[in-house]
Design a protein around this nucleic acid. Structure first.
Lengths: 132, 132
DNA sequence: GCTCTAAATGACGTAAACGTCAAGTCTAGT
DNA sequence: ACTAGACTTGACGTTTACGTCATTTAGAGC
């Protein structure tokens, strides 16, 4: 198994975050690194969670929302005992993500439309320049 | 032309935002309603911008970022004079959005994988129940 | 003229997500 | 023993994006 672990500094470099942020995520119970004395040791589980945290942030989810969502991506023992409820929450989240993707597609389409308009204006400008 | 205009209250109901938020967006120069005396009158341009603002927020963009992006979706006179630069910015934004969509697709795939795992666990549980 | 409603401005407050010191601890290297 | 570097725990500060009053103003209807 890949039981690679990370110090806080290593994880910071790897994911371009600050120590303060990682400690904050631990305080908010999004991560729970084990300890070697007083120092934090981040396991693969923490790494996986951190990836999801950063991903969630990029899509505008709050840390509070992300905390609730983390369990949907990695079933832990607590979730298995209420598996049905967890799966329902996962389905709701899936619907939400798909809605976001649709909206994102619309945003991209709108932008491309506008870019085409701009391209035409540019073409017209150079045509007129040539006609002078 | 649809020269429909809105009072602040009408716009709030339509988009489920507060007056405070709209005034804040104006203060931050994301909207610029005209005035009838001291009252704000929101035009179609403001409506279009508001849609983009709310959309941007849903994808985790800050108001400052959104302010810069608004001009990419609706070319105004200021932009036309620097059309080439605007189009380059639009292309960069397009790349960013496409990156986000790819990441979103991965998130959806991950979630669906995990849901399949959960479904199997659920099926196994009921199988064992039936075998007892 | 009066009241009601919608809207205005101004000012202070707040939640989220960290940033930024300050001061102490631990450990590996000389 | 000593120093440097990485890490720790407080604790207060900051930015963003509004919320929440308090107080005014202005038109609409009776």
């Amino acid at each position: 198994m890949s039981d690679t672990t990370y110090s806080i500094g290593e994880l910071c470099k790897e994911f371009d975050v600050t120590p303060r942020a990682l400690r904050f995520y631990e305080y908010k119970e999004l991560l729970n690194p084990i300890r070697d004395g007083q120092r934090r040791i981040f396991t693969q589980r923490d790494v996986a969670r951190l990836k999801l945290i950063l991903r969630g942030k990029r899509f505008g989810f709050s840390l509070a929302e992300i905390k609730d969502l983390l369990d949907l991506y990695h079933l832990n023992d607590g979730q298995v005992t209420q598996l049905a409820a967890t799966l329902e929450a996962a389905e709701r989240h899936r619907i939400e993500l798909i809605g976001k993707r649709d909206e994102l597609d619309m945003a991209i389409a709108d932008l491309e439309d506008q870019m085409r308009v701009g391209q035409e204006m540019l073409a017209e400008k150079s045509t007129r320049r040539a006609a002078e």
